[in-house]
């Protein structure tokens, strides 16, 4: 029983960084920007959060620093991909490599450590114990006592859905992704819409980084994003950018992440257990494409029946 609860709790926790990064990437997905820089944005966010929290002694400053870090990375991406019209893929790769190099370098310079930096001066995000529910056995253990950002990120998922499908910005964003010259022709600056989309993706990925280094664990480690930005990309493509779908996919990946951890204590070598989330990504892509093919086939058969 305890093991089950542990697994579910770790599922929720592991899902958050992927969820936040993929929510960010959803904006760029709809703007038709091939944004692979979530990985770098997560990492910079995580590092900046530790930096802010450690030196200020406040988790709030840490949170703001992390988000700013993500936005900073987004500004670089915007400058190159939108205004200088460089290739989005190459820019994204460069940004990811830069993020890894810069955080590793700064880690060693500022904290004089290699690998990972831990300190009791890094103030973690506070947990939220939901009144009443907290006291209920099992349910309380399952639902209460997570870092407060976890609850907020689930709320953000719903807000993003609303933002993209019900608001003026959302309408313009999706139109920009489909045909930016049409958007320009009705007097909207499509470059500005794209920039906003990238900045939002930076802010949300940065927040994902904050969760990673101030909540999921309480430290910074070199390359601690560890492919989560890439998994976020896979999640976006799998769900075709539906934020509510993202929520479930992120939980699924969180589960496999947690499962990988749980299996570490068994006879399976840890190198294999660490593969679990990535194998799950490949498997998901496979089933997704197979399902899509069948759907197209069905639609065609329906059509030919109608004729």
């Amino acid at each position: 029983m305890n093991l089950m609860i542990e697994l579910i709790r770790s599922t929720f926790l592991a899902a958050v960084p992927i969820l936040l990064a993929s929510l960010g990437g959803t904006y760029t997905y709809y703007a038709d920007i091939f944004n692979i820089a979530m990985e770098g944005m997560l990492l910079i966010g995580a590092f900046a959060a530790v930096l802010g929290s450690y030196f200020s002694g406040s988790w709030l400053i840490g949170l703001l620093a992390g988000v700013s870090g993500g936005i900073l990375a987004a500004i670089i991406f915007t400058l190159f991909a939108v205004y200088l019209k460089t290739d989005e893929f190459v820019t994204g790769i460069a940004l990811n490599l830069f993020a890894l190099g810069a955080t590793t370098y700064l880690l060693r310079q500022i904290f004089s450590v290699k690998g990972a930096f831990t300190s009791s001066d890094i103030i973690a995000l506070p947990d939220w114990h939901i009144p009443i529910i907290d006291k209920i056995p099992i349910i309380g253990e399952l639902l209460s006592g997570y870092p407060f950002l976890l609850y907020i990120s689930f709320l953000i998922a719903i807000l993003v859905e609303f933002h993209i499908f019900k608001t003026r910005f959302g309408l313009r964003l999706r139109a920009t992704g489909e045909d930016d010259s049409t958007v320009d022709s009705v007097g909207i600056n499509s470059d500005l819409i794209k920039s906003k989309a990238i900045l939002l993706s930076g802010a949300l990925s940065g927040l994902g980084g904050v969760f990673l280094s101030l909540a999921y664990v309480n430290m910074f480690a070199e390359n601690m994003s560890n492919g989560r930005g890439w998994i976020a990309l896979a999640v976006i493509i799998l769900t075709r950018g539906r934020p509510i779908g993202l929520l479930f996919m992120a939980l699924l990946f969180g589960f496999f992440d947690g499962l990988g951890f749980a299996l570490q204590n068994t006879f399976i070598p840890s190198q294999f257990t660490q593969m679990v989330p990535y194998l799950a990504t490949l498997a998901a892509l496979y089933f997704y494409s197979k399902q899509k093919k069948e759907k197209i086939k069905e639609e065609l058969e329906d059509e030919s029946m109608a004729v």
């Binding site: 999706r174 139109a175 489909e178 045909d179 010259s181 049409t182 958007v183 022709s185 009705v186």
Partner: peptide
Amino acid sequence: QEFMLIPSY
């Protein structure tokens, strides 16, 4: 001449 419309809208 070329329409300025979003096809999926």
